[in-house]
């Protein structure tokens, strides 16, 4: 089937690509555009490793058709740091060892950022439910939750 031309914006930069009508946004990010920071853990929207934002809204990119990106602003892990300056969540995840193998980490960070944008002062329970769509098999979530809570506290102080 003929490919569709898509104009979109990824991490603030204009991007054009050709997509099969059946391709997911995740496929295009990883295999067409080389943005492999977004991971595929399941392809069915159950693990959250492919989390990205579309116009600021958190989605599983494996459940979004690539052609749906037309005219929208996509946010991926590659756009989270500003140059050499890590996002506070990224920095805190490193300081507090909130990752082990790291495969879920990009998705967790994108989810955590979306959570803190909506709720800058979450309780532990709110963090746990906010990240319930992101499977992590290594950490038992303990250090992830602590890092998100710490980041939120730090970001509130610096605003």
């Amino acid at each position: 089937m003929a490919k569709t031309h898509i104009s979109t914006s990824i991490n603030g930069e204009p991007v054009e690509f050709l997509a099969d009508p059946g391709s997911s946004l995740l496929d295009v990010l990883r295999n067409t555009l080389g943005l492999t920071g977004t991971k595929e853990g399941c392809g069915t929207g159950d693990c959250g490793a492919c989390s990205v934002t579309v116009d600021g809204r958190l989605v599983c990119s494996c459940l979004v058709l690539a052609v749906e990106a037309e005219g929208h602003e996509i946010g991926t892990i590659e756009g989270m740091a500003q140059g050499e300056t890590l996002h506070p969540l990224q920095r805190k995840f490193l300081e507090m060892a909130a990752l082990q193998c790291g495969i879920c980490t990009p998705g967790v960070l994108i989810s955590a950022r979306a959570l803190l944008e909506k709720n800058p002062n979450p309780t532990e329970t709110e963090v746990r439910f906010g990240l319930a769509g992101n499977l992590c098999r290594c950490t038992g979530y303990d250090k992830i939750v602590r890092a998100v809570l710490e980041t939120a506290a730090e970001m509130r102080e610096t605003v």
């Binding site: 943005l35 492999t36 989270m80 890590l86 990224q90 490193l94 300081e95 495969i103």
Partner: peptide
């Protein structure tokens, strides 16, 4: 001590190359 892991920055920025990331 709780140092920052040597492979950490690549893993929080999406640059670390896992098996399926290679072409």
């Amino acid at each position: 001590t709780r140092t920052v892991r040597p492979d950490g920055a690549d893993k929080v920025t999406g640059r670390a190359t896992y098996a399926a990331d290679n072409t």
